[in-house]
Amino acid sequence: SKIRITWGDKTWEWDGDDEEVWKRILEWARNLGDEELWRHVKEWVDK
């Protein structure tokens, strides 16, 4: 399956939905430097 994140007018996609993928997404969000996006992603990961 895919994980799709839409933020503003951008959309990103990742293949898979296991823990490793979420770790990569969390790292990606942090590297993007958008605090609010990172917080949202972290909330999803922690669920």
Rank of each mutant, 00 (worst) to 15 (best):
28 W>V: 02
4 R>E: 08
46 D>A: 11
8 G>A: 07
30 R>H: 13
27 E>R: 04
15 D>K: 04
14 W>M: 03
12 W>I: 05
37 L>H: 02
19 E>G: 13
25 I>A: 03
26 L>M: 10
32 L>C: 07
37 L>R: 01
30 R>D: 05
23 K>G: 11
39 R>M: 09
4 R>Y: 14
8 G>K: 09
1 S>N: 15
36 E>N: 08
26 L>P: 00
1 S>E: 13
34 D>T: 03
9 D>T: 04
39 R>N: 13
46 D>P: 07
13 E>V: 09
15 D>N: 13
17 D>S: 14
22 W>D: 02
39 R>D: 09
15 D>T: 10
15 D>A: 11
37 L>Q: 01
12 W>L: 06
3 I>V: 12
14 W>F: 10
14 W>C: 02
47 K>N: 11
47 K>W: 04
27 E>G: 05
11 T>E: 10
13 E>Y: 06
38 W>G: 04
32 L>G: 06
15 D>F: 07
9 D>Q: 04
42 K>C: 11
21 V>F: 04
33 G>V: 05
20 E>K: 11
46 D>E: 14
36 E>G: 04
42 K>H: 07
32 L>R: 08
18 D>Q: 11
29 A>E: 00
5 I>R: 00
28 W>A: 01
2 K>Q: 06
4 R>W: 09
42 K>P: 00
38 W>S: 05
11 T>F: 11
35 E>H: 05
2 K>N: 06
12 W>P: 00
30 R>T: 09
9 D>N: 06
35 E>L: 07
20 E>L: 14
8 G>T: 02
11 T>M: 11
20 E>N: 13
42 K>I: 12
2 K>Y: 10
29 A>Y: 02
24 R>W: 08
37 L>S: 01
22 W>T: 04
21 V>S: 07
42 K>Q: 13
44 W>C: 03
11 T>K: 04
10 K>L: 12
33 G>M: 08
25 I>R: 00
15 D>M: 08
14 W>V: 03
6 T>Y: 10
14 W>S: 02
12 W>V: 06
19 E>T: 14
21 V>E: 02
11 T>Y: 13
40 H>S: 15
18 D>I: 14
10 K>F: 09
40 H>F: 15
46 D>C: 06
6 T>F: 11
8 G>Y: 15
30 R>F: 14
2 K>F: 10
7 W>Q: 03
32 L>W: 14
40 H>T: 12
36 E>F: 05
19 E>M: 14
34 D>C: 09
37 L>W: 07
32 L>K: 09
22 W>C: 03
33 G>S: 07
7 W>T: 02
8 G>W: 13
39 R>K: 14
5 I>W: 05
14 W>K: 00
22 W>A: 03
23 K>P: 06
38 W>N: 04
22 W>R: 05
11 T>H: 08
12 W>Q: 04
32 L>H: 15
45 V>D: 02
7 W>P: 00
20 E>V: 11
16 G>E: 10
25 I>H: 00
17 D>Q: 10
39 R>C: 08
4 R>C: 10
8 G>R: 11
31 N>T: 14
15 D>R: 03
32 L>D: 06
22 W>K: 07
38 W>T: 08
40 H>I: 12
31 N>W: 13
8 G>M: 09
13 E>H: 03
36 E>M: 06
30 R>P: 00
